[in-house]
Amino acid sequence: MKSCCNKKHEEIRSPLGKARGLGSSKSGFAHWWSQRITALALIPLSIWLLINIQYMFATSHVQATTWLGQPMNAVGVILFIWLSFYHALLGIEVVIQDYVPKKSSKTIGLLFARFFFVLLGFMSAYAVLQTNFGVDNISFVLDDMHDFPISSK
C-alpha cells in the first residue's frame, strides 16, 4: 500500500474537487454555433462553386479570370474561402483539444492552427482580388493608402 505522501497531488484531491476543476468557462457556445452556421452556409456555396469549376475545366485561362472578375463571382469565392477556412479552423481546434494531451503542445497547436488558417485565408483572398484588380492596381491602391494621414502616422 502506498503511503499518502507518495501519492500525486491529483490522487489526494477529492473526486468532487477534481470533477468541479476550474469551473465552467461560460463559453463554448459561439464556437459550436459558428461551426454549424458555417457548415450550413457552405452547402449552397460549395454546390455553386463546384458547378462553376466544372465549366472552367473546358475554358481558357482568360475566360476563367474573366469569370472571377465578375463582382458577384469574386464575392462568392472570397466568401467560400473565408467560410471554409474558418470552418476548417474550428474543426481542427476541436481535434487538437480532443487528442493532444500535453498542455504546452496543445496551446502551440491551437496558436499554429489559427496563424496558419488566417495566413492561408488572406493569401487566397489576395489572389482573388489580384485577379480582379490586377497587380498594378493593387500596388496603386496600397501606394495610395500611404498618402492617407492616418496610415502614414
Binding site: 469551473g23 465552467s24 468557462s25 461560460k26 463559453s27 463554448g28 457556445f29 464556437h31 459550436w32 483539444q97 480532443d98
Partner: peptide, 11 residues
Amino acid sequence: DDLEDPFKLYR
C-alpha cells in the same frame, strides 16, 4: 451557466 464550457458539455 455551469454547463456552458468547451469541455464539460461541448466535447
